[in-house]
Every structure is written in C-alpha cells, then in structure tokens.
C-alpha cells in the first residue's frame, strides 16, 4: 500500500499504523533523552560517551556546512532532532512487529508501519524544514531581507534609480526580481523533494523486504535487512544535512553577495 492504513479512529480522527510507529519513535526518543539526562555526569558513562560522540561528529558536520560555530550551535539541535526522529522511524519499520496486525476487508493491516513510509510524515518534516528555515532567516537576518529574497523590491527600486545612467539595469533587475519569484517555487520544490525522497527510499525498502520475504522467507532477506539499516541511516543523515543546509542558507544575507558582485 502506498499509504498508511487506518487502524482505528478517535472522534473521527484517523489513527494510522504509521502514526502509531511515530508515537513509538517519539516514546523511544523520550526514554533515550530521559536516560541520558539521568546518567549525565562529568565523567561520562558509556551511553553518554556514545551520545557525546554523535553530538561532536554532528556538530563537526554542521560546521563544515555553516562555516560558523555559533550558527552551527543554533541549527544543530534542529538537525539532530530531525536525524533521530527519521532514524528511529526508519529502523522501527525493520523490526518484526509488522507481523502483528488485523485482517480488514480481507487484507492484512499491520499495527506498525515505518513512520517515514507514510508521505504525511515526510511531508510534515519537509514543510517544517522550509517554513522553519524561513522563520530562522527572519530571526537571523531580518524579515525585510527574507521578504526581498522572494519579492525583490530592492531590485525594482534599484532599476528605477539607476535606469537612466545604466540602461542595462532595465534587463538585470527584472531578472533579479523574477529570480525571487522562482525562489518561491524553489521552496515548494524543496518540500516535494525532501518528502518524496525520504518517503520513496523508505517505502521502496519496505517493498523490497516484502518482496524478498515473499520469494524466500528465511535467510535471503537478511542481507537486504542490513542494507535497509544502512539506507535508513543514510536517509536520516541526508535529510538532517539538507535541513542544516537550508537553515544555513536562510541565515545568510544574499543581498550582501549581490552588492559585493556589483562592486
């Protein structure tokens, strides 16, 4: 099934198996955070050491993207949250709990399905990323600059001001304005690209595993399970890195670059 199946409903609100998986993922992360908080010590325990290792590595990757530690420290909590949320959701789909479910209208409906194998989840993450990045941009560089990124009023003003001396401005500045409009389309494309990439990879993995299990139930699917563990990790890293990139770009003032180029 391309979409998550409804298990039951509460006051007409559909509860799907992907949503149940997401809740389990949230629970796992909450318990993990609680354990880390409880075991926090100056001399780290093994679990704290592992978490510190992940944090240091992630922050290092973030630094490579942003090139600025203070900016990385602002973006990193979001990226790492996205990473864990996607990773746990991806891996939950690989657990054998999918064998538990109900028969509805002659079809088997599993109780749990990987949260990221439902487009609603990935779409939610994509929407969060794009809207979050723009809000981050407004907070970091200001609303006016973010507004001008999409509706380049400054370009039109520059055209009106310099057209007499520089007739080429009549061509260049409308292009800049048009590029801003294209950015809006780009933002929508980002949502589509982020959500469909993740959904496609995870869903394809589930289909692959189901097909392999159907062909030969024992041993044969095992290497594919390992492959999917890796794919789940890679997809989580890719999504988190893209979140970092989008947030980092949003925090960068592009009008400065244009001004530099013109000088």
């Amino acid at each position: 099934m391309l979409f998550a199946e409804q298990i039951f409903s509460i006051f007409g609100f559909p509860i799907t198996n992907a949503m149940l998986s997401s809740w389990v993922a949230v629970l796992v992360i909450v318990v993990f955070a609680w354990i880390v908080r409880r075991k926090l010590a100056v001399v780290p325990t093994q679990i704290q050491q592992a978490f510190e290792l992940v944090l240091e590595g992630g922050l290092g990757l973030c630094d490579q993207v942003t090139g600025d530690r203070s900016l990385s420290e602002k973006i990193f909590p979001i990226s790492i949250s996205v990473f864990f949320f996607i990773l746990i959701n991806n891996w939950l789909g690989l657990l054998p709990f999918g064998a538990f479910g109900v028969i509805r209208e002659g079809a088997f409906v599993p109780f749990l399905r990987s949260g990221t194998a439902d487009l609603n989840t990935t779409l939610a993450l994509g929407i969060f990323t794009v809207i979050g990045a723009n809000i981050f941009g407004i907070v970091t560089i200001g609303a006016w600059k973010v507004f001008n990124k999409y509706f380049n009023v400054l370009a039109l003003r520059k055209m009106a001001k310099n057209a007499r001396h520089e007739p080429t401005e009549l061509i260049v500045q409308p292009i800049h304005f048009f590029v801003g409009i294209v950015e809006i389309v780009g933002e929508i494309a980002k949502i589509a690209s982020l959500s469909f990439r993740l959904f496609g990879n995870v869903f394809a993995g589930e289909v692959l595993l189901a097909a392999m299990t159907a062909l030969a139930a024992y041993i044969v699917p095992t290497p594919f399970m390992f492959l999917e563990i890796l794919v789940g990790l890679i997809q989580a890293v890719i999504f988190a890195m893209l979140v970092t990139v989008y947030f980092s770009i949003a925090a960068h003032d592009h009008s400065d670059d244009t001004a530099h180029e013109q000088h």
Partner: peptide, 20 residues
Amino acid sequence: LIVVQLVNFAIVFFVLYRYA
C-alpha cells in the same frame, strides 16, 4: 495527519533539546 506528525516532531525536538 501532517499536523499530528508536526506535533510529534515538536515533542521530539523539545524533549531532546530540553533534556539531552
């Protein structure tokens, strides 16, 4: 469903940020 998943992620973000 999208809103619910956004809320799920918000919980994850809050808990991870606040407690870990």
